[in-house]
Every structure is written in C-alpha cells, then in structure tokens.
C-alpha cells in the first residue's frame, strides 16, 4: 500500500476543470516532485489529498485514510505547508508553534524541543518573540516549514518549499527534505522549480491541464541516456503552454 494513492481524481470549480482524471502513487521513502505550469491543477490536487476540498470523482488514500470522508484524520497524520503562506497573525512564532502543537495534541515539552531545534536549523531563534505579522516573508516561511514538520508526520505535502528563502536556508531545507524522505517517510513537493526538483526528488510527475502527463524516476539508477528534466517538461507541457500563453509577437501586435 502506497503512502499516497490517487485514482481517477476529478475536481471542477464551476465550469473550470482543475483536475481531470489524475492517477499516481507515492511510496514511503520517496521525495515526489509534482511539476507543472501555473493552473495545471497542482494546488487543487494537494488540497484534495489533504481533505481541504472534496473531489468530484475518483478515489484518494493517504496513509490509508480517505481525505474525502475523514479529512481530520488525514490532516492529523500529515504535515501541510500551504502555497499562500501564513495568514496574518499576531502570535509570535513560539506561540504559533504552541498553537499548532496543541491542535495536534503534542506535549508542551515536545513542542518546545522541536521549536528550539527548528529555530536553530533555519536560523530564526532571534525572531521567536517577534509578532508573526512583523516577520519578513522568508522568516514566515521558516515558521511555516516548522509547523509542517513539528509532529514528525509520515507524509508531508509542500507547496513551493523554498519560496522567499535565502540561498543558505534553501540548501538546508533541501538537505533536510532528502533526509526526511529517506527515513521511510513520503514527501510530496509541488514546485515550479525544475532544477530543485531534479536535484532533490527521487521521482517526479509532470502535470498539465489537470492530468498527470508523465512520470520520471530520478534515482541514481535512472537511465542517464534520457534528456534533462527540463527538456521532458517542455516537451510534455509546451504544446499546452503555447496554446494558452501569448507570444511576444502577440503582445507586440
């Protein structure tokens, strides 16, 4: 049984078909990259896998829970780093992580230990008492990364993990994600950054127009004769992009 199993997933918003028959499986130990252009259905897929929206059709299993019918059980087991960043909040990072810990039924000691460890790892110790709303976007992202991992979940969903982070912290986060997945966990990363996906993911799925158009394994043993991930991405997505995106000539005219 995979950590994440998606079969025939469909989700529409009015007349817009955001996800149209998505199918894939992610196993424990995998760092799965979910690549696609804007509007391809990546965020809707994550929202469906975490029980935030109900699918129109298809079956989804995450750690043997059904996010459609038992969303709280799913969210209890997984970690989520949403795309839109954190909402404005007047809690400090320490208080916010205490809030997350209480909501997730973690002991105060464990939250304190995790907070200290993550603050040191990502370098926000000096900001633990600053109001969240007064933090820079990068600092807010560090706090949000911490909340996604604070309960050491077996599966983590991450939408753009490196957004707003400086290069040094990006390297730390990339290394951490690789090691976390290697520890028999599944990390599901949605990103536009193909270089990052190629660098850290064990497997990627390329999505366009709400469907998974191809997958590629990026393990060391993968076929080196294949083209780069960027070439594959462009090849599979370019036709859709060319149709939807105006060219410079179009803009000029």
């Amino acid at each position: 049984m995979g950590a994440i199993r998606v079969d025939g997933l469909q989700k529409s918003y009015g007349s817009v078909e955001a996800v149209a028959g998505m199918e894939f499986t992610v196993e424990r130990g995998e760092l799965y990259g979910f690549l696609g252009p804007n509007g391809a259905g990546k965020t809707t897929t994550i929202r469906t896998l975490t029980g935030q929206v109900r699918p129109d059709a298809g079956t989804v299993r995450v750690l043997e829970t059904d996010p459609a019918t038992e969303p709280l059980e799913t969210r209890r087991k997984v970690g989520i780093l949403p795309e839109q960043g954190s909402p404005p909040s007047f809690l400090t990072p320490r208080e916010y992580l205490e809030f997350v810990g209480e909501v997730r039924d973690l002991s105060a000691d464990r939250v304190a230990d995790q907070t200290a460890a993550w603050a040191e790892r990502l370098g926000f110790e000096s900001k633990l008492e600053t109001l969240h709303t007064d933090l820079s976007r990068g600092q807010q992202q560090k706090v949000m990364i911490t909340q996604a991992f604070i309960h050491e979940p077996d599966v983590v969903f991450i939408d753009e993990p490196l957004a707003n982070l400086d290069p040094l912290v990006q390297e730390q986060v990339k290394r951490f994600l690789v090691s976390y997945a290697a520890g028999d966990n599944a990390v599901f990363v949605s990103t536009h950054n193909i270089d990052v996906a190629e660098e850290i993911c064990t497997r990627v799925g390329i999505v366009a127009d709400g469907q998974l158009v191809t997958e590629r394994s990026l393990d060391d043993g993968a076929d080196e004769g294949e083209g780069s991930l960027l070439e594959l991405f462009l090849e599979r997505v370019e036709a859709e992009e060319t149709r939807d995106t105006p060219t410079l000539e179009h803009l000029g005219s």
Binding site: R47, T50, L72, R76, P82, Q84, P87, P88, S89, V103
Partner: peptide, 14 residues
Amino acid sequence: QFDSLEAYLAYPVS
C-alpha cells in the same frame, strides 16, 4: 478581521 478560514484547513480542525 485578521483571520482566514482557509488557513485553518492546514490543521486537523474542522
């Protein structure tokens, strides 16, 4: 005023 319902959907709360 300073809250967002969507944001709570990242946690195991209804």
